[in-house]
Amino acid sequence: MSDAVVLLRQTLPAVLPRLRRFARTLTRNVHDADDLAQIALERALLRAAQWRPPASGAMPEQIETAVRSWMFGIVKNAWIDNRRAHQRERRVVIGDDGMTEIADGSHSALEEGLSIAAAMEHLPEEQRLAVSLVLIEGLSYQEAADVMEIPVGTLTSRLSRGREALAASLCAKEQAT
């Protein structure tokens, strides 16, 4: 096992809680989020040799940041693959996850937590990713753009649109109550 792989394996436990949080912003429920985190961990360890550590002498925080960014990218790709693989089948069988809707329908009063999560769910995928990486995970624009494999300009425009949509839907909910 190379030094880089050892370093990666040593660092993964520290970044796992953040991976779980990132996954939860993408999926509709806790179980799917942990599925996603698990797939990402499995992929990462299969491809550990592809990870490029920061230059030698990097501080532990820098190593953690590098592992985190790499892992966020793997989570994102796993999520997109998953969406593609299931879109067609879902449509045929039951529509767009009718189960969640039924479960949600049993709550007559939406609590704030549910409403912001619901607003997130309604965002287009690319805006949700941008919002999650920058607003929740606190990545810089450049880091988030790297994870999403898009130019910074594209990232900021997706982020802006996501923010506006979230703010609008939260305002609408507040006015409705």
Binding site: P17, R18, R20, R21, R24, T25, V30, A33, E112, G113, I116, A117, M120, V131, L135, I136, R163, L166, A167, L170
Partner: peptide, 14 residues
């Protein structure tokens, strides 16, 4: 907005 998002999604960290 940022604060509410973090409040919503951060409990998983613990």
């Amino acid at each position: 907005l940022s604060a509410r998002l973090r409040t919503e999604y951060s409990p998983v960290l613990d």
